[in-house]
Design a protein around this nucleic acid. Structure first.
Lengths: 125, 125
DNA sequence: GGTGTAATTTAGAATAAACTAAATTAATAG
DNA sequence: CTATTAATTTAGTTTATTCTAAATTACACC
């Protein structure tokens, strides 16, 4: 399966990836999705849902006055597995950070090797 | 391998995908890349190359006053195969269109089923 | 030193994307 | 029909990206 460019565009936005993750394993209404993202308006969520649906990343069904959205995982193929790894990694990193925070009793400086800002020359040799 | 978000952002731009395709199979100098894209300035190409390199999609080496760029295919994994399919598909579509154009002797109307612009209601049922 | 070629960088302009607030549409319940 | 809830759409603003033109850096050669 060759992805349409619109898929790549859709996945480039953190907001859209967040929405996609929310409907990855279970369908949710537009409202439930919005409630999970309190920092943005309902309208904005609706627009992003449209973008995701037009890219074929989610599909929806209407029931009563609700609209349920879910990810079209099967349409994503390997790209889907990649996203899952990405989300798992992020979780893992969060956990690790929490552990570090907890283990840190008293001010332990630790090795801080700051990456020096480099102004790269047109060539190295 | 979980992709960094920066990879997804980098792949969302048609311009950057074009550059990536140019250095996919063989390395090229920044100048050669620019020559293959006459509609944009050298400076713009250089900026996009930087974005691609920071995302880890290309790497470069300097030689004389030149800088050679090449895709880091191995770093892309399944995403790389997807891009290849995408490019092949695009080629295939171009070829098909050319054939159609050639075969079309005289004005043959053909079945034109225009997609009606739909203003979707919040629900269907 | 100076000239030519290659590439990068900067500042600012043009373009595109995302968001908000308000208006609108749909359906349900009374 | 009216009120309520859910969602979408529109118009306009904000923000981010992409581009250009000009200046700058790097290297080779004379």
């Amino acid at each position: 399966m060759a992805p349409e460019p619109s898929v790549l565009v859709a996945l480039a936005s953190p907001r859209r990836r967040e929405i996609l993750r929310l409907v990855w394993r279970e369908e949710r209404t537009a409202g439930a999705i919005h409630r999970a993202m309190p920092d943005v308006t309902f309208g904005a969520v609706s627009l992003q849902l449209r973008t995701l649906e037009e890219a074929g990343l989610v599909e929806s069904r209407g029931e009563k006055q609700f609209r349920f959205y879910r990810a079209r995982r099967e349409a994503l193929g390997a790209l889907g597995e990649m996203l899952e790894r990405m989300w798992d990694d992020a979780l893992w990193r969060l956990k690790l950070a929490a552990q570090l925070e907890e283990t840190r009793r008293g001010p332990r400086p630790g090795p801080q090797r700051a990456q020096a800002q480099q102004k790269r020359p047109p060539r190295k040799k």
